[in-house]
Design a protein around this nucleic acid. Structure first.
Length: 871
RNA sequence: GGUUAUUUAGCUCAGCUGGUUAGAGCGCUGCGUUCACAUCGCAGAGGUCAGUGGUUCAAGUCCACUAAUAACCACCA
């Protein structure tokens, strides 16, 4: 069974085969797990990537973290489900495809028509989708492909329709005329959080509507003033108090306006003239004021961004042209008082950067404040807030709980209808004034289905349960099948930037559909920035293709570099150097395995119980292993992935490879322990770097490592072995160090005299280690009295002195010793001070005080020895 | 304007509920290596933990303020 391992690990030659091996084993699917029926489940639903483009490095980080959690839990006996899928990303996808077609053929969607455009979109979608799924496999993601889902496939379509209808029937969804964010380019509404802001300089015009109107107003959007129905002033503003409540009618550039003077606290008396022209139809705040003051709403701009009919010469003009014409007219009539440049935050579409036109429109909304019967009279908002407040829903890191709650409490009704072609149709039909909402089209003539589609977040908000078979798996308030087994899921792992966009919606929709949270914990990872700390973006061209990194360094190296050196909720920088460093470490691990497996009998060794330690080094390494296992477990259970990997690295390289394996070369006869140690580190490392560990496993074991038991803590920590071994190790390090300081090359062999005050130490072990372990000592003589030889290098650790007999520069050596003495003296001084402090002795825990006392004694002993040796 | 973070070695970052001489990777310096690994080993240099004040027997760690940086939210007539 044993196969020779190559000198260096070549990921490119192995990863694809290993992935196939895993896939064909069937163990990605929890139904195939060799576990008792009662085994606990552990579920993560993969946040579905948009099918607009292939995956970027941020997705790789997400996959690395989730696969780590999944593999770790799978190896710990959980029935583990990680469910893959992709998101149709309605607007985003349609825009990408439209742009692509326009670039290739110059055609717009209106040239093509709905059917052909949709066909093209599906074609595009199938390409990127398979590319994305291929990328996930490349990274080693142990996803259950048998349950793969898409936000716009048939099963999800069914779920979306069903939830829409249920929410409509409960009154959680309504149709209403509201002012919405309208993108004239996308020809669609946008949710509040799909709007972005950017600073621009624009002109602020100050003018009067008419010569006999008493108040001057300022605006950056004169063209909308055709629809003004009021002027708002601060009620405390003395200049205008006398006008409050009055109404004025006059002619404004050929348009009859009736303006009421209203008071509103939000008007800043110091901005402009302190008076604000209220345009209810084209400004969010003005809409609010109109509602409160019962003002008329006059629509000026239409969905194409043109001035509507009924505004004389202005009708049909674009916003820009209308503005110029209007300003010219005001100038001519002497009504324009001033124009100045101001810096202004304008709202733009997050997809196409077109400035947003707020306009009133008939749209579908999810009501977040309406009390719902099935939520016990609570609203969606209240329910979603409560789970965060009560701690039913945990956030990692915790601070995002506050952000979630802040955002939730300010949430307004969510506009869910979009005027695009690609997406879930709305299950609503109209006949004149009649409205019909159900799963199927109504009987009878003349019914027309709503032409809009649903916001993409509506379907992704249902992701945790629509993927697990809702609504079929949910009857009379009871869950069945996958839904019963795997919902609520354990962790949602995603980027903090969609905490509000997505996480909050998932909570609301799951609370509505199932009355439970969609997940127990939300783990939020940071953004991966480029080497210079800048956001990666297509336009800047600083993005990193994960496949390039994988091809160069291997998937394991990429995963490990993304997992280490980053903490939840904090951004981290990507650089190829980091990946290379991890590649090097993985190769180190490979060679550790290669060496161990090359020892006779190790690969064939069948160990049924924990191995019997024979020497102090054995006892030491098993103690270290034991500590490592429990520490790593603790860190992983706590979502501290970086720390867990660090602890493992330290054990693997600094303890196992650098010390134990070197000693094993001297001592020999370690077949069982080496076998045991190798099996342990392969299992410990597997969730982090699955490919290389599985590859090594396959070279000498049967079955797949993926479903092996992750090591459990079953060895008591041998404190005595640990301290004895550490003593000798420190001594050897000190010898190497002093040789290096005295510029004695490692090849030069030296003799040494050893004097130890306390011969309780395992002298035989020390002698063997010191002569054989690269210390460059050819012989070692133990003496009963301190010989104090001249012209020797002196090394002291605790109570033991080594004199390395060599021709050295006495001044240099004296300087080295003096420096060491100074360090010790300073330590001793500090410790004595502390121990002399009564308050410390009486108030600090006894354990700490004892520790300090022991330390002080050890340093003093060491210092005394050092002093004796110098003349 | 509000909120939340960040500030630790030349660079990129760890450092959990306060308690060994503050760590890692990369880079740098010196030495080395046919015997698992140059995708390597050994040793070293390099830090008043942003600043000020406070709490405490004890502060990189907790609190307050200041400064710089970033993200998010709100307003924008």
């Amino acid at each position: 069974m044993k196969k020779e391992l190559a000198k260096a690990y070549v990921p490119q030659e192995n990863e694809n085969d290993i992935y196939r091996l895993w896939e064909s084993s069937g163990f990605f699917n929890p139904d195939n797990a060799p576990l008792p029926k009662t085994a606990q489940t552990y579920t993560i639903i993969l946040p579905p990537p948009n099918i607009t483009a292939k995956l970027h490095i941020g997705h790789s980080a997400m996959l690395a973290i989730e696969d780590l959690l999944i593999r770790y839990k799978r190896m710990n006996g959980y029935r583990t489900l990680w469910l893959p899928g992709t998101d149709h990303a309605a607007i985003a996808t349609q825009m990408v495809v439209e742009k692509k077609i326009f670039e290739e053929t110059g055609q717009t969607r209106h040239d093509l028509g709905k059917e052909i455009l949709l066909e093209k979109i599906w074609e595009f979608l199938r390409n990127t989708q398979s590319e994305i799924l291929g990328q996930m496999r490349k990274l080693g993601a142990s996803l259950d492909w048998s349950r793969e889902a898409f936000t716009l496939d048939q099963a999800r379509q069914k779920a979306v329709n069903r939830l829409f209808v249920e929410m409509y029937q409960e009154g959680a969804i309504y149709r209403g005329e509201r002012i919405v964010n309208w993108c004239p380019h996308c020809q669609s509404t946008l949710a509040d959080d799909e709007v972005e802001y950017s600073e621009q300089t624009t002109k602020l015009y100050t003018f009067k509507y008419a010569p006999d109107f008493p108040i001057t107003i300022s605006t950056t959007r004169p063209e909308t003033k055709l629809g003004d129905t009021a002027v708002a002033v601060n009620p405390k503003d003395e200049r205008y108090q006398k006008y409050l409540g009055q109404e004025f009618s006059f002619d404004f550039v050929g348009q009859k306006l009736t303006i009421k003077i209203i008071g509103d606290r939000n008007v800043d008396p110091d901005f402009g003239t302190g008076a604000l022209g209220v345009t209810p139809a084209h400004s969010m705040v003005d809409w609010q004021m109109a509602q409160e003051n019962d003002l008329a709403v006059i629509k000026v701009i239409n969905e194409q961004g043109l001035i509507r009919e009924g505004f004389g010469n202005y009708s049909g003009l674009s916003v820009k042209d209308a503005r110029e014409k209007l300003i010219a007219e005001l100038k001519e009539k002497g009504l324009l008082i001033s124009e100045e440049e101001v810096i202004h935050n304008i709202s733009t579409c997050y997809r196409c950067d077109t400035p947003i036109e707020p306009l009133p429109s008939k749209q579908w909304f999810v009501s977040v404040d309406c009390p719902l019967e099935r939520l016990g009279g609570k609203s969606l908002k209240e329910k979603a807030l409560a789970v965060a407040q009560e701690g039913t829903l945990k956030f990692i890191p915790e601070r995002f709980n506050k952000r979630y709650q802040d955002w939730m409490s300010n949430l307004h009704d969510w506009c869910i209808s979009r005027q695009i072609w690609f997406g879930h149709p709305i299950p609503v039909w109209y006949r004149g004034a009649e409205i019909y909402c159900d799963l199927k089209a109504p009987e009878g003539e003349g019914w027309v289905q709503d032409v809009d589609t649903l916001d993409t977040w509506f379907s992704s908000g249902m992701w945790t349960f629509s993927t697990l078979g809702w609504p079929d798996n949910y009857r009379d308030g009871k869950k069945f099948g996958d839904l019963a087994n795997f919902h609520p899921t354990q962790v949602l792992e995603t980027g903090y930037e969609i905490l509000t966009l997505w996480v909050s919606r998932m909570v609301m929709m799951s609370m509505f559909a199932l009355g439970e949270t969609p997940f127990e914990s939300v783990y939020l990872h940071g953004t991966i920035l480029d080497k210079h700390g800048k956001k990666m973006s297509k336009s800047k061209g600083n993005g990193v293709d994960p496949l390039v990194a994988i091809n160069e360094y291997g998937a394991d190296a990429l995963r490990l570099s993304l997992l280490m050196g980053s903490t939840p909720g904090n951004d981290s920088r990507y650089s190829a150097d980091k990946v290379e460093a991890k590649r090097n470490f993985i190769n180190k691990l490979w060679n550790i395995a290669r060496y161990i497996l090359a020892q006779p009998g190790v690969a064939e060794c069948q160990l049924n119980s924990d191995p019997e330690p024979k020497t102090i080094a054995d006892r030491w390494i098993l103690a270290e292993l034991s500590i490592t296992i429990s520490e790593v477990r603790k860190r992983l259970d706590n979502f501290e992935f970086s720390l867990a990997a660090e602890i493992l690295t330290e054990f693997t390289r600094d303890k196992l490879a650098d010390w134990y394996l070197e000693i094993a070369k001297i001592e020999g006869g370690k077949t069982e322990i080496l076998n045991y140690l190798l099996l342990a580190i392969l299992r410990l490392w597997h969730p982090f770097i699955p490919f290389v560990t599985e590859k090594i496993w396959q070279s000498f074991q049967t079955g797949v490592l993926m479903i092996e038991q992750w090591p459990t803590f079953n060895l008591a920590v041998d404190e005595q072995a640990k301290s004895t071994f550490t003593f000798w190790r420190d001594l050897i390090v000190a010898i190497r160090n002093s040789r290096s300081a005295n510029k004695i090359a490692p090849g030069v062999q030296l003799e040494a005299l050893v004097f130890s005050v306390n011969n309780q130490k395992d002298i035989a072990l020390g002698a063997e280690l010191i002569t054989k372990l690269k210390t460059g000592l050819s012989s070692l003589t133990f003496v009963n009295e301190d010989p104090k030889p001249e012209n020797a290098i002196t090394v002291v650790v605790q109570d033991t002195i080594f004199y390395l007999l060599a021709a050295i520069d006495p001044e240099k050596e004296a300087a080295r010793i003096t420096k060491e003495r100074e360090v010790l003296e300073k330590l001793i001084f500090n410790l004595s001070e502390r121990l002399a402090n009564q308050e410390f002795v009486s108030r600090a825990p006894a354990k700490i005080v004892d520790q300090e006392k022991e330390k002080l004694a050890a340093y003093q002993l060491e210092l005394n020895k050092l002093k004796e040796t110098i003349l």
